[in-house]
Simulated assay, not measured.
Amino acid sequence: MNFSSFYNIGNQQPNLEFVDVRLNRDNMLFLDPRLIELHNDPFSKRMQERIAVFWGEFIKAVKAKNRKKTYEILGGLKEPAETRLGYANDNSRGNAVARKLKPKMIKAIEQNKAVMSGVLKHFCDIELFIEDVSSDRISDITTKIIKDVLIEFTQEQCKLYNIPMKSVWQEDIFDHNKVEWVKRKVLLPIYFGKPVILVPKNIVRLEGVAGQNFKCFYRFAVRNFIQYDHSMLEDVSGTGRGGKILLRDVQLEHPISKESLSNWVLKYGKLLVDYKSDILTDRLRVLSDREIMNIVYSEDLFQAG
């Protein structure tokens, strides 16, 4: 049962602005803060503002070693089940955001030189440097930070299609003006007693993209910086003809790790900037309707559409 069919909207994914989620199970799509940065519409700009405030205040608290404030800022990062995206119905994964990820994230950032030095300025870049942060974790965190904007987007869509809404309490709404998590009563559509929050289709990505970006960044670093730095090649044994050092030799000596990338962005000032401008910008793209349909529609409905 998809949102459009349950409410008899009369349109399918290509004619909808939101992800037409299946309501009774998870949809393997994930919010992408990089795509949010890519857009200039009013909703995206408000999302950008909240993410910037959250990340700025979080880093400020970490640098000040204010553990109380740090945990307060992370206080609302619990499983965002209302969107039906990612692993929303997997309680073990969802609860891990609150129970396991918070202390790991704080410790990792406290020990990360790229973050503490100010090189890592944008929340979306944590996928490149912080362990245990992948597509699903980034999506969960992003969803909670921009939850109030998503609620207003949902309300706009419901008014557009005359979808009934009910007043329900929603916890863990990030108030970016006060930098605190609040509880509010809001209007939302209800599916068998559970509220639904819609997500714009132009800000979601497929599973595993964070890992792909990380691996791509590593390869870029090795090919464009490490292999030309003689100090990094001193202990590399060349296996090419005449002892020539090949890329695989460099990778063997300097295996992929987020800790290495954190150190490299400090060593090479242009590394992160060049990667984002030369490679990452071209990799960013909005999913096609067909890609989304492959995820959210059953085979019969997909073929019918």
Results as ranks from 00 to 15, higher is better:
Ser167Phe: 02
Pro164Ile: 15
Ile141His: 07
Lys178Asp: 07
Leu160Trp: 03
Glu156His: 11
Asp172Gln: 11
Ile151Lys: 13
Lys183Ala: 04
Lys185Gly: 02
Val168Glu: 02
Asn177Pro: 02
Ile145Leu: 07
Asp132Pro: 01
Val133Trp: 03
Asp172Leu: 06
Ser134Tyr: 11
Gln157Arg: 11
Val182Met: 06
Asp148Glu: 13
Arg137Tyr: 13
Pro189Leu: 07
Thr143Ser: 14
Ser134Cys: 13
Leu150Val: 00
Lys147Ala: 14
Glu131Lys: 14
Ile190Thr: 09
Leu150His: 06
Ile146His: 04
Arg137Met: 13
Ile173Gly: 00
Met165Gly: 01
Ile190Ser: 08
Asn162Ile: 08
Leu188Phe: 05
Ile138Arg: 05
Ile151Arg: 13
Cys158Thr: 10
Leu160Val: 03
Asp172Ile: 00
Pro189Asp: 12
His176Asp: 08
Arg184Tyr: 01
Val182Asn: 07
Arg137Ile: 15
Ile141Asn: 05
His176Gly: 02
Val186Ile: 11
Leu188Pro: 03
Phe153Trp: 11
Glu180Arg: 04
Lys178Phe: 06
Arg137Gln: 14
Pro189Gln: 09
Val168Ser: 02
Ser135Glu: 08
Glu180Gly: 01
Glu171Gln: 12
Glu180Lys: 07
Val186Asn: 07
Met165Tyr: 01
Thr143Asn: 14
Arg184Phe: 00
Phe174Ala: 05
Asn162Ser: 11
Ile130Trp: 03
Lys183Pro: 02
Ile151Trp: 05
Ile145Asn: 10
Ser139Val: 05
Ile138Leu: 14
Ser139Asp: 12
Val133Pro: 00
Thr143Gln: 15
Thr143Arg: 04
Val133Glu: 08
Val182Phe: 03
Lys178Met: 09
Ile163Pro: 06
Thr142Gln: 00
Ile173Cys: 03
Gln170Gly: 03
Ile173His: 04
Lys147Glu: 15
Asp136Asn: 14
Phe174Ile: 05
Ser167Asp: 05
Ile146Pro: 01
Gln155Thr: 12
Thr154Ala: 12
Ile138Lys: 01
Ile173Ser: 02
Pro189Ile: 13
Asp132Ile: 07
Ile151Pro: 07
Asp148Asn: 14
Ile190Cys: 06
Pro164Glu: 13
Lys185Arg: 10
Pro164Cys: 09
Asp172Gly: 01
Arg184Ile: 00
Val168Ile: 09
Ile173Arg: 06
Val133Ile: 15
Lys147His: 13
Ser167His: 05
Thr143Lys: 02
Thr142Asn: 08
Ser139Tyr: 01
Asn177Lys: 09
Ile163Glu: 07
Val149Trp: 07
Val149Gln: 15
Lys144Asp: 12
Lys166Val: 06
Val179Arg: 01
Val168Asn: 00
Leu150Ile: 01
Ser139Glu: 00
Asp136Ile: 12
Val168Trp: 01
Lys159Ile: 12
Ile151Asn: 10
Ile141Arg: 00
Thr154His: 14
Gln155Gly: 11
Asn177Ile: 06
Val149Glu: 15
Tyr161Val: 09
Cys158Leu: 09
Ser167Met: 05
Glu152Val: 10
Lys166Ala: 09
Gln155Tyr: 05
Thr154Cys: 11
Ile190His: 04
Ser135Cys: 10
Lys183Cys: 02
Pro189Trp: 06
Ile190Val: 12
Lys178Ser: 08
Glu152Thr: 10
Ser135Asn: 08
